[in-house]
Computed example of a mutant assay.
Amino acid sequence: MTKPAPLRPVDAASVLLIDRSLDRFRVLVGKRSSKHVFMPDVYVFPGGRRDRHDSRTPVSAPLHPAAIERLLLHTPARTRQATLHGLGVAALRELHEEAGLTIGNHVSGKPGALPFLPDLSALRFFARAITPPGQSRRFDTRFFALFTDEAEIDPTAAADSHELLDLRWIDIFEQLDVDMHMITIQVLEELKRCLQEDPSLPFGTHVAFFRNHRGQVVRNTL
């Protein structure tokens, strides 16, 4: 019997929204519904797959040039520009859909379109992870960090959705009291390392890249 080909990872984006207003760093997480096939009943950062229309969605401000430079690494040349733009849009679209938060300028548009023009300019690209083979779903996820004050977001405005439940702000440097998948913890640890090196999270720093090698998750840098 022919062995099925491994699933090809699809592009996805996730946002680590950081609140630094209380002299500490807190990040927004929510619990995935038990109805999800991929990673049900665990806490994650808002995010999801890049939809086809994300690459064509207009924005109020593009990604920072330094973020683009890092995103270009190990990105297929034939899809580069569409992928980069679409990843930034996907990150903020998912944040809006899953947590009710809007980053950008409100607009009145046609049904089905985003009710705002995403502002991608403050997204810091700091981590990337590819789901290992053998999973029911595989994603090539780019993780972006975003400060609430830079995005003019009120942390108390985050609201549960049918996709993310029990939204909460967790202190990055305290012991976790929520159930997370190992890769989510690794990305959170990466954010902690970046903040310890420079709390401002400057654009263009090296990006952690987690992927599978001979059955083990390895960390490289971009």
Rank of each mutant, 00 (worst) to 15 (best):
T2Y: 06
T2S: 08
K3E: 12
K3M: 02
A5M: 04
A5Y: 02
P6N: 06
P6E: 02
L7E: 06
P9D: 04
D11R: 12
A12W: 02
A13L: 11
S14G: 05
V15G: 10
V15C: 14
V15Y: 00
D19R: 04
R20Y: 02
R20P: 01
R20A: 15
R20K: 12
R20S: 14
S21A: 10
D23T: 00
R24T: 11
F25L: 09
R26C: 15
K31S: 05
R32P: 02
K35M: 06
H36M: 13
H36A: 14
H36W: 05
V42G: 03
V44N: 06
G48F: 06
D54K: 09
D54G: 07
T57H: 04
P58K: 15
P65V: 09
A66F: 11
R70T: 06
R70H: 11
L73E: 14
H74W: 01
T75N: 12
R78V: 03
T79S: 11
T79D: 09
T83Q: 10
T83K: 14
H85Y: 01
G86H: 07
L87F: 03
G88D: 02
A90Q: 07
A91G: 07
L92T: 15
E94Q: 14
E97M: 14
E98D: 04
A99K: 03
G100C: 02
L101I: 15
T102H: 03
V107C: 02
S108K: 04
G109L: 07
P111D: 13
P115W: 00
F116A: 10
P118R: 08
P118W: 03
L120R: 07
S121M: 03
S121C: 03
F126V: 05
A129S: 15
A129G: 06
T131I: 00
T131G: 04
P132L: 11
F139P: 06
F139H: 07
T141A: 12
R142E: 02
F147N: 04
T148V: 13
T148E: 11
D149F: 08
E150M: 07
A151P: 01
I153D: 08
D154C: 03
D154T: 01
P155E: 08
P155H: 08
T156R: 11
A157Y: 06
A158R: 01
S161R: 07
H162S: 13
E163I: 14
L164T: 11
D166K: 14
W169C: 03
D171I: 13
I172E: 11
E174S: 11
Q175T: 10
L176D: 15
M180S: 05
M180P: 02
H181R: 11
Q186R: 15
Q186T: 15
V187H: 07
L188A: 14
E189P: 00
E189S: 11
E190G: 05
R193T: 04
L195R: 06
Q196K: 13
P199M: 13
S200T: 12
L201V: 02
L201K: 05
F203E: 12
H206M: 10
H213R: 09
H213L: 13
R214L: 08
V217E: 14
V218Y: 01
V218M: 02
R219N: 08
T221Q: 09
